[in-house]
Structure formats: C-alpha cells, structure tokens
Amino acid sequence: MSENELNFDDKLMSMLHIIANEGINNAARGFSGLLGEKLTVNNPGVRMVELKEIPHILGGPENEAIGVYLRAEGDISGQIMLVIPYDKALELVDLLIGNPPNTTQELGSFERSALAEVGNQTGTFFINSLSSLTGLDVRPSPPAVMVDMVGAILDIIVATTGGVSEHVLLMEANFELGNRKVETNFWVIPDEKTLNAIRFGAS
C-alpha cells in the first residue's frame, strides 16, 4: 500500500470512528426508548472483517437467530443488521410486550413486528445521526425480519459486498439489557461507493 493510500485509510477510519460513535450511541437511545430501559453499549467500534469470517462472528453459521435488516439509501448508502440469538429474541419480545419472562415461545407475525420495530427505531436513529453529522440526505428502508440460521441470515451482507471485495467494513456494537441480559448485535456496513465518497471527499 502506498503512503497516500495509507493516509486516506487513516482519515477514512477516523471519520468512520466518529460516525460510528455518535451513530451507535444514538441507535442505542432509539432501542432503549422502545423498552423504557437503558441499554449498555458493549464493544462499539469499526473494523475490517474477512468475508469468510462473517458467519462465524456470531457463534456459528448454523445457530438459529433473528436478523432484522434494513438499508440506508440516499447520499449515503449501506446496510444495517441487528442479529439476536433465537432464545434472546424470545426474551426481547417479552420485554417489548411487557410480558413476564418465558411467555413468548414462538415468533408469529405479531412478535416479528415487534422485532421489526426494534430494527426500525435502532436503525433509523443511527441514520438520523449520520444525516445530522454529515448534512447529507439518508433515509431508511422498512425492515425485514429473518428467523433462520446465522449463515443464511448473513448471506445478504456477504452477497451484497462480496462481489466488490474480500473484506467487509463493519461498524458494530453489542447492546445489552441490564438484568435480563438480552444481547443484540448491531452492524452497519457502508456501501463501497459511500466509503469512496468519504475517502475521496475527505481532504
């Protein structure tokens, strides 16, 4: 890598860190608001991950999980994904609906809509922050809820970014809810053209 490329990537990474920090904290606020409880934000950060590694980050590609996926579109574009292990998702639904623990045993359309709304508010709050930081226009798509193996859920990310690169740039955090320990992984993956816009616009 040439000196120049390194500099661009340093600048890019530092901008991404700023965006990630603000965005993730705002996203956590959106999520918290639905629950009326404060969330802990664990391990927020930005990193490059090899495509092949993606399905293994969340404990294994065959584990059952819920993925809530939405896209950010506009002057800035990218993907947003919340992933929750299946059992934790059931607990989260209980919390959202206001049920005692272990009430929810299955994820019907009503329960999925609650998880979709978590994705919507969390993702939209991230996007609001992005728009406010950059002054650019960015809007969310409606969310899609997937209940399946982690590998299958994450294929959309791999397939969308995989044609262009062997690596995926991830902005990530883990949201944890105090006493009921519902862990939700939150990922933001900027599109290559957005990274380029930031990279070449940053000077």
């Binding site: 609906i97 359309s109 009503f110 329960e111 809509s113 609650a114 979709a116 709304e117 919507n120 409606p142």
Partner: peptide, 8 residues
C-alpha cells in the same frame, strides 16, 4: 404503521 406491534 407497518409494525402490527405498534398499531396494537
């Protein structure tokens, strides 16, 4: 609202 949960 598209989320049934919120409509309810």
């Amino acid at each position: 609202d598209d989320a049934e949960f919120l409509r309810v």
